[in-house]
Structure formats: structure tokens, C-alpha cells
Design a protein around this nucleic acid. Structure first.
Lengths: 141, 141
DNA sequence: AAGCAGATGAGAATGATTCGCAAGTGAGAA
DNA sequence: TTCTCACTTGCGAATCATTCTCATCTGCTT
């Protein structure tokens, strides 16, 4: 239940938050902009202000429920923190986003940070390229 | 001479472009925002519109003279393409930016893209962390 | 010196995100 | 169950970075 998730991170359980969270959980698009979320809720008949969407997303992010990505050129997208950590590869032609995880890179990052005298707290790795023709057609997140 | 650089990439040699380029080359801060460049030129007595700064930066980027970075939370910063490719590590406390290059990661990225059916054209890797106390004090780019 | 495509400056326009505020609503206390 | 109150929300205004419009200007070629 989404109410649990909210309570667990210390957020008051409210209708807007539940709607936004469950949209994120049910949507087939893994990466959504605030605008998209707002529009989909509106189309679903919900009356939720855009500002509220932004506020909720910021809180969810702070709570670790979702992650924010800023792929080049595009708007900020939000993604539910389901499984384990991963990075992204984005098709510069069709916008398709694939996820990947690579232990070698992850380990290497930590070593590099250490060598430079930093305590690594986060990282952002996004690859850009063109995906193979067959798959590369429409836009999606 | 900066005029050469402009001609080489097919850009008309104009005063604003020369001023902006030479500021980028002479500045001790490696990463500058459009706003910063605009302000520094203004303080230097130059009359160059902010829009012109943005236009020039976009053209320089397209020409490969500079690179654009979008570190999380902050504005877009531009950096002169001097030496070879590198990635960045940013101190989340003081904003200091260090550069690094790691062949293992670079190679790995290419392999991953290939495996996923992408032709890699670019990538963005930024590490975030806290730098060791001694160095971690003021803001800079 | 003349002509023109491309460049510039100033300010308006845009788009995404945040703020301010009055009204509304969870959730624990009584 | 009702009461309270801090936390929320919706709405529109405000902000911020960036882009566009357009009338004027300026490199570069002839």
C-alpha cells in the first residue's frame, strides 16, 4: 500500500501524494516529468495543482522514494526507486532510455573519488548514443 | 590568436566572440556560467548583451571549442576544450570541481553501449562527494 | 566604396519551477 | 467523536535561466 510508503518516510498521507505515488508505480513509462504527471492526473479527473506535484516530487526525492534525472537537452524526469541502483543510456535520436548496472564502473568510481580525496556520496552517469535501427522509432521515457 | 580559432571553425570573427573566447582562455575559473561571463565582461567595461553571450556559447559548443556541463542543482557551466577528454567530481559542500580521466571506465562505457545495441556518441559522468576538509572551504568553478 | 548575410543589443517572451497566501485537512489529543 | 493545529493544498503571481524578435550594425567579399 502506498500509504505505508509515505508513513515510513515520515510524510503525512494525503490524497495528492497517494495519487502521484500510485501513478508513478502504475505507469508504464519509467521516467516522467512533473508536467506529464500533472497532465495524466488531470486527465484522470483529479484536481491537483502543478505546484503540488512539484512539491510532492521534491519530498519523495528527499525521502529517497524517487530519483531525479536531468538528461541533456530534456526536462527533468523522475523515476521511482524500485530495484537496485543503475545508470542510464539514452538514444539521442528517439529518446528511448535503457538502464544498466556495471560493477566495474561503480567500483572504479569509488576508487577515483578516494584517490582525489573525496568521500563519494553520489554520482550521475548517462551514456548517449543511437540505438539500433529496429528499435529506434518513437519517443518514450 | 583567438581569431584563428574562430576562423578555423567557420565562425565570423567579431568583437563579442573574441572577448568571450579570450575571457574563457584567461580565466582562472575553468567552469563559468553564461551569467558570470556576462558580468565579468561588463565589469571590464565591455558592452556585450547577455543574449550574445548565450549565442556565442552555443556556437562555440557546436564547433567543439567548449563543452557544456550541467552539475546537479547548479546552473549550466561552460568549459574550454583544452586538453583531452575528462570527467568531473564535484564537492557537494564547497562546489570545487576536480577533473579526472579513467581509461577503465571509458572502455567499459563503450562495451556497455555496444552490448545494449547503441552506438555511443557521448557520455556524462559526474561524481559527487565531500572533499577533504583542508581543501574544502570556498566556492569556485 | 558598396552590398549583404550574418551578428548584435535591448527588451519582450517563454518555459520550467518556486513562492505567497488564504483555505482545507490529516492525525493525535481531549 | 470532536477539537486543534501544524502541515498541505490550489491558485495565481513571481522568479530564473534561456531564447526570441527585430531594428540596427558590421565583417567580409567584390
Amino acid at each position: 500500500m502506498e500509504s505505508e510508503e509515505l508513513r515510513n518516510v515520515g510524510l503525512k498521507v494525503t490524497t495528492p501524494r497517494l495519487k502521484i505515488l500510485s501513478l508513478l508505480e502504475s505507469s508504464k513509462a519509467k521516467h516522467m516529468t512533473a508536467e506529464t504527471i500533472y497532465r495524466q492526473l488531470s486527465e484522470g479527473g483529479e484536481v491537483i495543482g502543478l505546484a503540488t506535484v512539484y512539491r510532492a516530487l521534491a519530498q519523495f526525492e528527499a525521502a529517497g522514494l524517487i530519483t531525479r534525472h536531468q538528461f541533456e537537452g530534456g526536462q527533468t524526469v523522475f523515476e521511482l526507486e524500485r530495484g537496485p541502483h543503475h545508470d542510464h543510456i539514452v538514444c539521442v535520436r528517439c529518446g528511448r532510455v535503457e538502464e544498466f548496472y556495471d560493477k566495474v564502473i561503480e567500483d572504479r568510481q569509488r576508487e577515483i573519488a578516494e584517490k582525489l580525496g573525496f568521500t563519494l556520496s553520489d554520482h550521475a552517469l548517462t551514456l548517449y548514443g543511437e540505438c539500433s535501427n529496429g528499435t529506434c522509432t518513437a519517443k518514450n521515457g
